[in-house]
Nucleic acid binder design. Structure first.
Lengths: 256, 256
DNA sequence: CGGGTCGTTGACACATTTCAAGTTTAGTGG
DNA sequence: CCACTAAACTTGAAATGTGTCAACGACCCG
């Protein structure tokens, strides 16, 4: 099953034109009314390819377009006045980058690509108008927002109350779930994050990330090779950090 | 000026009946259409007084009522499987406790009072129906959700990338702003948080909170007396932690 | 082939935690 | 109003997880 985030995004844009563009997914649930689907079908959108390490949304600068990552990885980031950086969310294909552009002039974060990425941009005005007319669309968008909340909160919990090992394990488990990478006990997926990026997600130093991941490898909990990670026994890793994926799946439980 | 969170909540319920109940506030902006105000006027709600340290929403347990704190202090909390606890938000009078109950069956957090509190409970079903009919109400609710997001993200940044001193200073500045406690350079407000609570908000130990606050007092940055805090020079404290209140005020900038 | 980015490792510094012992404060019942 | 108790605050000493600094190695790309 695909991650809640992805599935939900696709549900919103689950129409003929957009659906074809969004890579490797299903539109599995939460179907909108036919009326709403047609409305979405008429949205104009642009389609861009962006290099790695480039800003899609600059911190504190507004945008009039809603961006959706359709390929590659990106992140929301925030900075401290004295140079500290934290990636408040990792954005995977299917994730909306700056959902709150629909309601606010300024985001409280910036968005930067990690790898090369392709991005769909939708005019906020059109989306807002659609949301105003179609409550189903509005609530789908709101639901996405609350899922973001859950993920960020979980990250705050990690950063505030878990050891470095637990944080890393948690992150690996989350990615495995969001990427739908598990088959049986084993899980594996492309893993091209810099150790510095991981550190910035988890509030750690790149050096310490290195040591900790090394330890995880030594314990046989993970294997890294060619920017590809394998988790031989997902349940063991989950147990190590007490991972409970329900916070990612909330959309699937909801029936609003 | 009052905090964005409070102001916005009151805007939503800024009608004759409810407004009278919500303590000490103004309904300053973002007025809904007359139609929408009337609709809100017909909501049935209950009204409860709760003692300190009691759960309003238990972690992971759903609720069919939207709770709003009208008096006293409360917090959203999350726990780690091995006992770690983090308060992901502090709830002040006017804040909605479990906004996402409108869309999800289960919250990812629990809500517990800190002091004695009084709480207004609104049936989710009625609110959802209203939101579906009135886009203005829906977007007001969504806006609240995104403000929550901004606050939690900011907290994650604090916990992940700021020193203990900076975190505490940041928290004190945020409270000062949200409580609208400043007059001139000076700011002061009731401060009855346990040091353990502060630690759980900031990802620190109660002991370390103590030491750090002691140091702040020694430096003349704050004064504590009888559960009442005074910040003699707010700008000095802000500078110490690089506090920028804009993330709290986002609603005021929006015009959606 | 060379230069830059990223990963790896070591030694050391330091912020924060842990443990433990008081002291103060607040609340309660006599 | 006082005595008593529990909860919260305070302080010290020691342990420890994580950060810092620095060097080196591996890899990729032009």
């Amino acid at each position: 099953m695909n991650s809640a985030l992805q599935a939900d995004t696709y549900a919103i844009f689950g129409t003929r034109r957009l659906l074809r563009l969004l890579s490797g997914t299903r539109c599995s649930f939460q179907s909108l009314t036919l009326d709403e689907q047609c409305a979405l079908d008429n949205i104009t959108f642009s389609f861009t390819s962006v290099g790695p390490h480039t800003d899609v949304v600059r911190e504190g600068e507004g945008s009039d377009r809603l961006m959706i990552i359709t390929e590659g990885w990106a992140s929301r980031y925030m900075t401290t006045t004295n140079g500290g950086r934290l990636l408040s969310s990792l954005l995977l294909p299917g994730d909306a980058a700056n959902l709150n552009a629909l309601l606010f002039e300024r985001p409280h974060y910036g968005v930067r690509t990690i790898t090369q990425a392709t991005i769909v941009a939708l005019p906020c005005k059109q989306m807002s108008m659609l949301a105003a007319e179609h409550p189903g669309i509005a609530s789908a968008l709101a639901r996405l927002g609350f899922i973001e909340n859950a993920i960020v909160s979980q990250q705050a919990l990690s950063v505030g109350r878990r050891s470095a090992t637990e944080r890393i394990a948690q992150m690996l488990c989350e990615l495995s779930t969001r990427l739908d990478a598990e088959s049986g006990r084993e899980s594996s997926y492309a893993f091209s994050f810099t150790q510095e990026v991981i550190g910035d997600v988890l509030g750690l130093t790149a050096v310490h990330v290195n040591r900790t991941m090394r330890a995880l490898q030594a314990d046989g909990l993970i294997t890294l090779k060619n920017r590809w990670i394998t988790i031989p026994d997902a349940s063991r890793l989950r147990q190590l950090c007490g991972f409970d994926p329900s916070y990612l799946h909330m959309a699937l439980l909801a029936d609003a």
